[in-house]
C-alpha cells in the first residue's frame, strides 16, 4: 500500500484514501461542438498507457476530497511528486531518483535466461 502526499492536506496519507483519476493535463476543449470526430476521439478515447513516467490525476476521496496531479513511474510504481490541480507539469529531470533500481519481473528473469 502506497503512501501518497496530498498537496492540499500537506501530508502523506495511505493509498486507501485516494482514487486514481486517469491521465492529467487533458483539458476539456471549450469548442466541443466544433471538434472533428478525429479531434474528439483523440481528446476522449485515446490514451498513451505509458511505461515509465506518467502524469495522472488523483483524488483524495476519503480525505479532503480534492483532485490533484501526480508524476508517477508506472514501472517502479513510485511517485516522483504530487502537485495541485491547475499547476503546469513539473520539471521531472530534477525529480527522477538518482539510483532507480531495475525491477525484478518475470520478463526480466526470462530475458536473463536467454
Amino acid at each position: 500500500m502506497l503512501l501518497i502526499y496530498c498537496p492540499y492536506c500537506e501530508e502523506e496519507r495511505s493509498e486507501l484514501e485516494f482514487r486514481q483519476g486517469g491521465d492529467a493535463h487533458i483539458a476539456r476543449p471549450t469548442n466541443m461542438t466544433e471538434m472533428s470526430d478525429e479531434d474528439f476521439e483523440a481528446f476522449f478515447f485515446l490514451r498513451d498507457n505509458v511505461k515509465g513516467l506518467t502524469f495522472e490525476r488523483w483524488r483524495h476521496l476519503n480525505g479532503c476530497g480534492r483532485f490533484f496531479n501526480a508524476a508517477r513511474d508506472t514501472v517502479s510504481d513510485k511517485f516522483l511528486t504530487t502537485y495541485k490541480a491547475g499547476l503546469p507539469r513539473p520539471d521531472v529531470s530534477t525529480l527522477r531518483p538518482a539510483a532507480s533500481a531495475p525491477v525484478e519481473t518475470y520478463e526480466a528473469t526470462e530475458s536473463d535466461a536467454k
Binding site: 483519476g21 476539456r28 490525476r57 483532485f67
Partner: peptide
C-alpha cells in the same frame, strides 16, 4: 456526486 465534483474542481473551477 463524484462526477459533479470532478467537473467542478477540474473543468469548471
Amino acid at each position: 456526486m463524484n462526477h459533479m465534483e470532478d467537473y467542478l474542481q477540474t473543468e469548471f473551477p
